[in-house]
Design a protein around this nucleic acid. Structure first.
Lengths: 174, 174
DNA sequence: CGCAATCTTCATTAAAAATTGAACTTAGGC
DNA sequence: GCCTAAGTTCAATTTTTAATGAAGATTGCG
């Protein structure tokens, strides 16, 4: 009964009306959202990436905000995440203040960046903890089977760190 | 100032008092919780697994509940998850009603099980969606670059499904 | 069978995570 | 150098996810 009077998110003045997502765009967004969930990437970030991915030309801040009907804060944070992980590039035409964004050519490289930032720190942080646990177990003369389990865990962790560092070399920029 | 009067979780009658986790147990739990977070496994599940992992003998329901000071519901659901993913085994001594639990020997196999159950379904579900998006793009004569991007996504997805199915073959049990 | 003891289910509650929006900072044009 | 458009930050709010616990189902033993 109520007319679908959507309340648009806080816009800047003089902003054009942006159309809502078309069905095929929604479907692609769902895909990116699902994949993002596996990687621990939040919905709004996946939505922004999807929009840029399906767009033939680079889009600016207001365009993204308008089409996704999303707050300024979320757009800003989302673009920051995507930038920080090398997933989007800024197209800066001279004579214009606004930045415009497009996905980086290599999605594979982008995924690697996300994995590195999420997984590697965790693995590395675990190294000293496991060492401590193992030392403590030895000191207490814990059950040999338990000691062996923890030692195995530690070897695993070390190898995972090495392997990840190999597979996910840090970027050379900066 | 307040005395540390812990309220123990709803226990069964006649339950012994279980001691809280020792520092080394807490440290190991933190490790499993962090690793679990990467894989999307909830805290309570990681806690239970950690406790079993560091225990020289199999533990029963009440023991787990008592030492972790956790609700019956969480213990039940946690054990279900661990069982369903082949991460723990039941030691059933005859002449006793209670089941007792210990970790399965292969943590590697357990991890594979988790990955299969979390990642593969998502990849598979995406196949038809991507096909639809691609068809739609072709039908609309969308920008060639965009069509190429989506086609690439689809090839990726297909290969990921094949690869995962290969690396993560379904278990033969049941 | 029947009756506990043991475990499961699921609606409710609590905790954690993501999003919003308004105040604030920064950067360019004039 | 000011002024304004553009973007950022973060406390407050909303949404999502996990944990609780009481009622219900199951199981095995007498």
């Amino acid at each position: 009964m109520k007319p679908p009077s959507e309340k648009p998110r806080g816009k800047r003045k003089d902003q054009p009306a942006y159309p809502p997502l078309a069905p095929h765009e929604v479907e692609l967004t769902d895909f990116f959202v699902r994949m993002g969930a596996i990687l621990g990437v939040q919905r709004s970030v996946a939505e922004i990436y999807s929009l840029l991915y399906a767009s033939p030309k680079a889009l600016d801040f207001d365009h993204i905000q308008g089409r996704l009907d999303m707050s300024q804060g979320s757009v800003s944070q989302g673009l920051k995440f995507l930038r920080d992980h090398g997933m989007i590039l800024s197209i800066k035409e001279k004579g214009t203040k606004r930045e415009r964004w497009e996905p980086t050519p290599s999605l594979a490289a982008s995924l690697v960046n996300i994995l590195r930032s999420q997984v590697l720190p965790t693995l590395e942080k675990s190294k000293p903890s496991l060492q401590k646990v193992l030392d403590s177990a030895s000191a207490r003369s814990a059950d040999p089977e338990v000691i062996e389990r923890i030692a195995r865990l530690q070897r695993w962790n070390s190898r995972a760190v090495e392997l990840s560092a190999l597979l996910l070399p840090p970027p050379v920029d900066e």
